[in-house]
Design a protein around this nucleic acid. Structure first.
Length: 475
RNA sequence: GGCGGCGUAGCCAAGUGGCCCAAGGCGAUGGUUUGCAAAACCAUUAUCCGUGGGUUCGAAUCCCACCGCCGCCUCCA
């Protein structure tokens, strides 16, 4: 398994800390608004990676945080807090807002068939853990207190900048930072903030206040995965400052290497443009579903291109994704028919090879820094060969189905189970079948037209049978 | 100003020195099949990989220049 490590700027062989096990932390949502498709691309990359590790037989412990403490809107630690802004606007308690959007996030995750993390720790439930780390950082001389605020002194951490490449000199040269007189260095970041206007307040050794942004991930990752763990994922924007600061805090506090492999997902574009509120192209999963796009097509579309590539999300792309999934699903339906209705027998060697080669190539493709395009190519080559195979017995069909299911354990795009067909649709299909037997094509076509008008599709199968599908849905 | 990425067919996209007259998906066209369809299968759809140079026996792949697009740089995944 090879992965591109942002820390080393290289593709590296993945070596887990414990054989057969992977500890993985993903930066989750900040719950002051509905997460959009861009957020979910990043979450889906984590899901794909996790599923692939499981495909390879690893036992994965996956932690995804829920940030329910708002962060400052402006730069330089000043300005309004997003969660609080939302709370004030909607005249609600910050925790109500957080819960509402957490629910929205969970619902969308489920729609996208994202495997739940082992734990979704909330920042507000780990204030004590954060305080403990801050204390340790003060004791070790990495942090200092000024006027009930605690700041991290970046100069004390020699490796500051090793992830992002932003050295202190360069940051000074860039000088986009407003000078805060309290800080020793302009780049020092807040570990604990004092602000009486803030709605969310907790007691601390430095008086009432609230935690800085970065500290939550240091606190929660070490609590659930240990001070040192395998993989940390997030969006590319997290590289600096968030992950840079996490490294500084965690490594200074523990004295250990924090994360072995850093994976960052590049931003999603919408129709060639950056997504933003002003452009009105921040779609949520729920909105796309309401527009009539299938949830598995949304998933397919979002995972179908390489995670280190900007992905241009378009409605045409979504339609193409739907067609692509239909192709797989269609093959599954055919194989299921054969598995149920054909006779048992031996598996021909060429079909055995087809399956094993497919799984091997699929594995190799994704093992190459999650080369999903290549993996999908392997998958479709297999589908074509499976469709071509003639006179298949039920044993063979079952074996090929098993292969597709193994692949889909990673892709997660196939619809589970068959949809319930209403009785009236079955009646029409039966009438059509009878008419066809009588060679009464006029009646048969009329029946088909009726079925179509009711939103279903009839497909004839070999041997005079038929298959019913909901229109626009293979399966 | 600093850091980084990209430019391959109508669209999406893999390939990073010979296996490439370049995978796979979507779309399109023709065919097989079908009572007609649908689905499936077959064939065609890039002799060439932003442009111009260079290195090499050999380049989409390496080097240089240019053009174009995009991201990050204090809280947006």
């Amino acid at each position: 398994m090879k992965l591109y490590n942002t820390l080393t700027h290289k593709i590296e062989e993945f070596v887990p800390m414990q054989q057969g096990k992977v500890g993985m932390y993903s930066c989750g949502p900040t719950v002051y608004s509905h997460p959009h498709i861009g957020n979910f691309r990043s979450f889906l990359v984590a899901d794909l990676l996790k599923r692939f590790f499981e495909f390879k037989g690893f036992q994965v412990t996956h932690i995804m945080n829920i940030t329910d403490v708002g962060h400052l809107v402006d730069d330089a630690d000043e300005g309004a807090d997003k969660l609080e802004e939302a709370a004030k606007k909607q005249k609600k308690d910050p925790m109500e807002i957080a819960q509402f959007y957490t629910d929205s996030f969970m619902q969308a995750s489920k729609l996208l068939n994202i495997k739940p993390a082992n734990k979704y720790p909330k920042a507000t439930e780990h204030i004590n853990e954060m305080i403990e780390i801050i204390k340790k950082l003060i004791d070790k001389g990495y942090a200092y207190v000024v006027d009930n605020n605690v700041y991290y002194n970046v100069e004390k951490f020699a490796d500051y900048g090793k992830l992002s490449g932003n050295t202190l000199e360069e940051l000074n040269a860039g000088a986009r930072i407003e000078v805060n007189q309290e800080k020793t260095n302009p780049q020092d970041f807040a570990l604990w903030k004092h602000d009486p206007k803030h709605l969310q307040q907790w007691d601390s050794p430095w008086g009432k206040g609230f935690p800085g942004w970065h500290i939550e991930c240091s606190a929660m990752s070490s609590k659930y995965l240990g001070a040192e763990f395998d993989i940390h994922t997030g969006g590319e924007d997290n590289i600096f400052p968030h992950h840079e600061c996490e490294i500084a805090q965690s490594e200074a506090a523990s004295g250990k290497k924090f994360v072995h492999y850093w994976l960052h997902t590049r931003f999603l574009m919408f129709d060639g443009e950056k997504m933003s509120k002003s452009k009105g192209n921040l779609y949520t999963i729920q909105e796309l579903v309401e527009k009539g796009f299938r949830k598995n097509a949304i998933r397919y579309s979002l995972i179908s291109s390489h995670y280190r590539q900007n992905y241009n999300f378009t409605f045409d792309g979504l339609k193409a994704a739907q067609q692509a999934i239909d192709k797989i699903q269609q093959c599954v339906l055919r194989l299921e028919d054969l598995r149920k209705n054909a006779k048992a027998g031996e598996i021909r060697p060429e079909l055995k090879d087809l399956s094993s080669n497919c799984l091997k190539d699929f594995d190799e493709s994704l093992s190459d820094d999650l080369n999903i395009s290549k993996a999908l190519g392997v998958c479709f080559d297999f589908i074509r060969e499976a469709n071509k195979a003639e006179n298949m017995n039920s044993t063979e069909a079952a074996a090929l189905l098993d292969t597709i299911n193994k692949i889909d354990s990673v892709l997660g795009v196939l619809e589970a189970g068959e949809s319930e067909v209403p009785v009236n649709i079955i009646e029409l299909a039966e009438k059509r079948k009878a008419a066809k037997l009588a060679k009464d094509w006029k009646t048969a076509d009329a029946m088909r037209a009726q079925i179509t008008s009711l939103g279903w599709t009839v497909e004839d199968t070999p041997g005079g049978g038929y298959r019913l599908k909901r229109a626009g849905e293979a399966g």
